[in-house]
């Protein structure tokens, strides 16, 4: 399964979440090797985003364990988890709306900015050098995502597709090993989706990442994911390659049973 030197990037076992009496996620399990590009699918309300929220520490875990690169991250604060190397995007894009695109990305460098508040107040040489480095790195990221021309725009003024790209750029700028994408293709037109799929592949290879994504657009999931985990009612109902999943009777039932055909 895994090479002895590299522990699995993500290893989840028995993950459970209660909201009051409601069991939103039950005994969820998942393992990702370094470099995997995996998908998490399921009907609405299946608990996919809740799993993301628990991996990133936004929700407290009710039970189970999450290991990242061999170490347990269960119960850590979100910022601690991010600092260890997990980054994510949100289903309903959560950019810093009143900040510029450049500042959105520069915020990701905060934890390794390399200078303190005193440097900033006194405007020391360290401040100038590090601030320049941060800015340049952020601009390089924007260039990769073809956003360099709008770096001084406010995030809230961007069209939807660009906001998604800024969010992914921002997540990558925090230098993650594992990237969680929550419905990256939502609201995109077919042409944008093709670009997005290429982008995800490119990002994975270029930054040597492990990627887990939630997606409703079956074209995306089946097109780029190597493994797929299917959830329904908070439980894993199937796992496998896209081919296996497409033929899985339980999965088809979960989707059709809800009256919603999977493919869009």
């Amino acid at each position: 399964m895994t090479t002895p030197t590299l522990p699995p990037t993500l290893e989840i076992a028995g993950l459970t979440k209660f909201f009051g009496g409601l069991r939103a996620v039950n005994n969820f399990g998942l393992a990702l090797k370094p470099g995997d590009l995996a998908g998490l699918i399921g009907p609405n309300g299946a608990g996919k985003t809740t799993v993301f929220n628990m991996i990133t520490g936004v929700y407290q875990v009710s039970g189970g364990d999450i290991r990242f690169q061999g170490e347990s991250i269960t119960g850590l604060e979100p910022h601690e988890i991010t600092q260890l190397g997990v980054a994510r995007t949100f289903q309903n894009i959560r950019l810093f709306a009143n900040l510029t695109v450049l500042d959105n990305v520069r915020i990701a460098y905060h934890t390794h900015a390399g200078y303190g508040m005193l440097d900033a107040i006194l405007r020391t040489a360290t401040y100038s050098a590090k601030e320049k480095e941060i800015t340049e790195r952020a601009q390089d990221f924007l260039a990769i995502f073809k956003l360099e021309n709008i770096q001084n725009e406010f995030a809230k003024n961007l069209p939807y597709g660009q906001q998604r790209r800024v969010e992914i750029a921002r997540a990558l700028a925090s230098n993650p090993r594992l990237l969680l994408l929550d419905e990256p293709a939502a609201g995109m037109n077919p042409r944008e989706i093709v670009t997005l799929m290429e982008l995800i592949h490119f990002v994975r290879d270029r930054f040597n990442l492990t990627i887990l994504l939630i997606e409703h657009q079956m074209r995306v999931v089946m097109g780029i994911c190597e493994h797929i985990t299917v959830m329904d009612f908070g439980e894993v109902i199937a796992r496998g390659t896209p081919k296996e999943i497409q033929g899985n009777a339980q999965v088809i039932e979960a989707y059709l049973g809800k009256g919603v055909p999977g493919a869009a």
Partner: peptide, 11 residues
């Protein structure tokens, strides 16, 4: 074991 005691070692 870890599943029973989720948040002990890092907290």
């Amino acid at each position: 074991n870890a599943a029973q005691q989720p948040s002990s070692n890092r907290r």
